[in-house]
């Protein structure tokens, strides 16, 4: 126990220890705060942005390409819209993408990974074989191909990313569930006549939760990064919806003079991905798992 102050013995539950490790980890706390701030900004966006009318297709040519100042804290874009406003709304699109992708990819990957690890045999061979194939495809190339062959928009970007993302969870959960399936308590449950369903959901899955949650947090960062890259390449949200990746792409035409048009949304993406990454790192230390 790495502590200098005495602790009540009954307080040393695994959960308490984990929480203790988490709160003692400054980067984890910073990461949590960053993630929380992104989520709050996204939820409260309509209430807090300085120029709500600049979210859509508004034009404000008088202030076009204004440098950051007290009126426009992060400057304005090529039609004079406030970049701060659009960045805050851009977080909404990023988080929507994260939720949309992970809500499907994580359960799907986890279910397949569980099944592969527990049942073994041809189920295992089929699922691990499939994940191996998916690993050989550069994810961005595949997402670009799928996203564009279907119509490029947010939902299709989501579909394209989801199609690839489940494999990582499947691999991870497979590894954990395979080792847990060999444990005595699983054997005991089987001998006691428990059904496959019971063993999978009550004996094995709870042991995978910490790994899954760490991976999911880290993944949030990469989904944001990935979505931003797709829209930077022109395969994301349709204008005028504010989206961080396409804002960077738009601003790039006016470099190097109008640097704020690129740096503001660019660093907003970086802020969000960094936050999720630090938080995920902290959770990893907290649960003491390898992901």
């Amino acid at each position: 126990m790495p502590s200098s102050r005495p602790l009540e013995l009954e307080a040393l539950t695994p959960r308490y220890m984990a929480w203790y490790r988490f709160t003692r980890n400054p980067t984890a706390i910073i990461g949590a705060a960053m993630v929380l701030s992104v989520i709050l900004l996204a939820i409260l966006a309509p209430l807090i942005v300085p120029y709500p009318e600049h979210v859509g297709a508004a034009v404000n040519f008088r202030a076009r390409h204004a440098a950051p100042d007290l009126t426009y804290w992060l400057g304005t874009d090529k039609v004079g819209r406030d970049i701060l406003t659009r960045v805050i709304f851009g977080f909404r699109v990023s988080l929507l993408l994260v939720v949309g992708v992970l809500a499907v990819a994580v359960p799907l990957g986890a279910a397949l990974g569980l099944a592969a690890g527990y049942f073994g045999g041809w189920t295992e061979r089929l699922i691990t074989g499939l994940t191996n194939v998916m690993l050989a495809i550069p994810p961005l190339v595949m997402a670009l191909a799928v996203g564009n062959v279907l119509e490029p928009n947010l939902v299709n970007a989501m579909i394209a990313i989801t199609l690839l993302w489940w494999t990582w969870h499947a691999r991870l959960v497979y590894r954990v569930s395979k080792s847990i399936a060999a444990e005595d308590f699983v054997e005991a449950a089987r001998l006691a006549g428990a059904s496959h369903w019971h063993i999978l959901t009550r004996e094995i899955l709870p042991n995978c939760i910490s790994v899954i949650s760490v991976k999911t947090t880290l993944d949030a960062a990469f989904v944001i990064l990935f979505g931003a890259t797709l829209s930077f390449l022109g395969l994301g949200v349709k204008p005028p919806t504010p989206d961080l990746g396409s804002m960077v792409a738009d601003g790039r035409q006016f470099l190097p003079e109008m640097w704020w048009g690129v740096l503001a949304p660019g660093f907003a993406i970086f802020y969000a991905t960094l936050g999720f990454n630090l938080l995920g790192d902290g959770l990893r230390d907290m649960f003491d798992v390898e992901v």
């Binding site: 960062a221 990064l225 931003a228 890259t229 930077f232 960077v248 790039r252 470099l255 190097p256 640097w259 690129v262 740096l263 660019g266 660093f267 993406i269 970086f270 991905t273 960094l274 990454n277 630090l278 790192d281």
Partner: peptide, 21 residues
């Protein structure tokens, strides 16, 4: 951590800006 989390297009643009200025 910065290397892993920074979008590669942002890093590329930062390098270009650095060169430009």
């Amino acid at each position: 951590i910065v290397g892993v989390t920074m979008p590669s297009f942002l890093f590329a643009i930062l390098l270009q800006l650095f060169a430009a200025y």
